[in-house]
């Protein structure tokens, strides 16, 4: 059985695509067959983060309209052969996606792949609803910041009421919290919500904490998902996320600020 995982958030710019790319590569590196689907019709970006933007010929909507087969549209990752990407279309009508035709495509993909990662668009419009509709699990990407936390809570409401699992009265979508752009230093200074605060408010299990990191921008600049930057803090944090997704218990890292200098310590900072 393929696991369908939606990476969602409500708010834009919190790291959904970065996380989708990292998780897709990470799972594939573990030997699983993974397909990453960009649901952001009209604002395709996953291809850029994955570094395959020049290889896009056909897209999701082409497949839905029968203008291309799935195999023609899927782009095989050059780094990890068990990973494929289904790009979003760039210019087409957003209403092209319906529950029926998306369902058919997911069913087809589930025959070949172990993991189907759906990169959701921001917002709570049709595109975002479509991305979460068939999900078995949801990775709710959240920044430690008021608007993001509130929007994540809205999305949790949608997962519980608007998904296929909710409509059919099946076991609810398994929710995971992925806290991104975390800055332990600012938390210690009382300027940022802590992991505990966010977990407290959203009350869903914590999947990972990704520290605010310069590696993320460098990774997107070069189209190499940050998990491949194995020496970076963010890369390591995403590797831990993969372990946890696969059922391992891994201690959380990067939750405390780096050791302070002797002066600040002397003055009790």
């Amino acid at each position: 059985m393929a696991r369908i995982i939606v990476v969602t958030s409500g708010k834009g710019g919190v790291g959904k695509t970065t996380s989708s790319a990292a998780i897709g590569i990470g799972l594939a590196l573990k030997g699983h067959k993974v397909v990453l689907i960009d649901f952001d019709i009209g604002l395709r970006n996953l291809d850029l983060i994955m570094g395959c933007e020049r290889r896009v010929v056909y897209d999701f909507v082409n497949v839905i309209n029968g203008e291309a087969t799935l195999n023609q549209a899927l782009i095989k990752d050059k780094r990890v052969s068990s990973l494929s990407i289904l790009p979003a279309s760039q210019t087409r009508d957003k209403d092209a996606l319906t529950k029926e035709n998306v369902g058919k495509i997911l069913e087809e993909l589930a025959k070949t792949f172990d993991y189907i990662i759906c990169d959701s668009p921001a917002g709570i419009e049709a595109g975002a609803m479509m991305a979460l509709y068939y999900a078995d699990e949801a990775i709710v990407t959240t920044n430690p910041e008021v608007s993001s936390v509130r929007d994540s809570d809205r999305i949790l409401g949608m997962l519980a009421s608007r998904s296929r699992r909710a409509e059919l009265g099946l076991e609810p979508i398994k929710e995971h919290l992925l806290l991104t752009r975390y800055s332990p230093k600012r938390v210690e200074e009382g300027e940022m919500l802590s992991v505990e605060d966010v977990v407290d408010i959203l009350s869903i299990p914590l999947l990972g904490v990704i520290p605010e990191s310069q590696a993320v921008l460098k990774a997107s600049n070069s189209g190499e998902p940050v998990i491949l930057d194995i020496e970076s803090d963010a890369g390591k944090a995403y590797q831990d996320v993969i372990e946890r997704l696969l059922g391992e218990t891994v201690e959380f890292r990067f939750l405390v600020a780096e050791k302070k200098g002797i002066f600040t310590r002397m003055f009790g900072g």
Binding site: E145, V146, V149, G190, E191, M192, L193, S194, D197, I201
Partner: peptide
């Protein structure tokens, strides 16, 4: 702290 305020408001 502002983080405290944020948590309260969010709750």
């Amino acid at each position: 702290t502002t983080a405290f305020k944020a948590k309260e408001r969010l709750q």
